[in-house]
Design a protein around this nucleic acid. Structure first.
Lengths: 105, 105
DNA sequence: TTGTTGTTTTAATAATTGTTTAACAATAGA
DNA sequence: TCTATTGTTAAACAATTATTAAAACAACAA
């Protein structure tokens, strides 16, 4: 079970174009992740700006850090992401079967 | 397919304690939704404040409005929610089978 | 019409957030 | 050691966002 404040923090972290792009890139990358410099190059943001944003994502628990020499690798935290998604649909339609054509509800 | 800017708008809308609470309440409520005043009472926020926040959620496409006499009913837009959730997990792990124990990836 | 209920809008203020530049640390290789 | 590479931090500024109180509006009832 996730706390509301934690979810707000995660949503806030994703609610910014650069950070959303970083996170999506890392979701596609999978468990190996990607070095800070590679991410910055790919998304065309300055190193300082990238550092600022990955810090926010890290504090929100959405990505994790792995050091390797001079490189800092970041990877998506899939568990945190799934907990957040689950929170949004929790007890949807009060548990009754929905007449909606989607999977979540 | 959803545009990045649209997703940022939806995430921003949810990234606030009162609005997250409003949305979750409406997700549980289902298609019938809930009147503005009822929501305000339940969440203990002023009518003006509630109006401000539902406006943000409506502009983000996450909830819809239905007028009934003097009452204004709000209901969660499940399609918009699911599109947003799908965007976050799109092309997860580059499409390879993940060794993770969760459903999303 | 007049009053009452339900909701939204406006304006003012306070707080938070994002970007840029420059400086700083740590590692790797010559 | 010296130098280049990789990444983070700090400070300043601009822009956005949330809250409050007051006023306005809209629908209904007496």
């Amino acid at each position: 079970m996730m706390k509301s404040a934690q979810v707000v923090k995660a949503l806030s972290a994703l609610a910014q174009p650069t950070r959303l792009a970083i996170f999506r890139l890392l979701v596609v990358r999978g468990v190996d992740g990607m070095a800070a410099g590679q991410i910055a190059d790919k998304l065309k943001v300055s190193p300082a700006n990238l550092s600022f944003h990955v810090k926010t994502l890290t504090h929100a628990g959405l990505i994790s850090q792995r050091l390797d020499g001079r490189f800092v690798y970041y990877a998506a935290n899939f568990t945190a992401m799934n907990n957040m998604l689950a929170y949004l649909t929790e007890n949807c339609c009060a548990g009754t079967a929905c007449e909606l054509e989607n999977k979540q509800c």
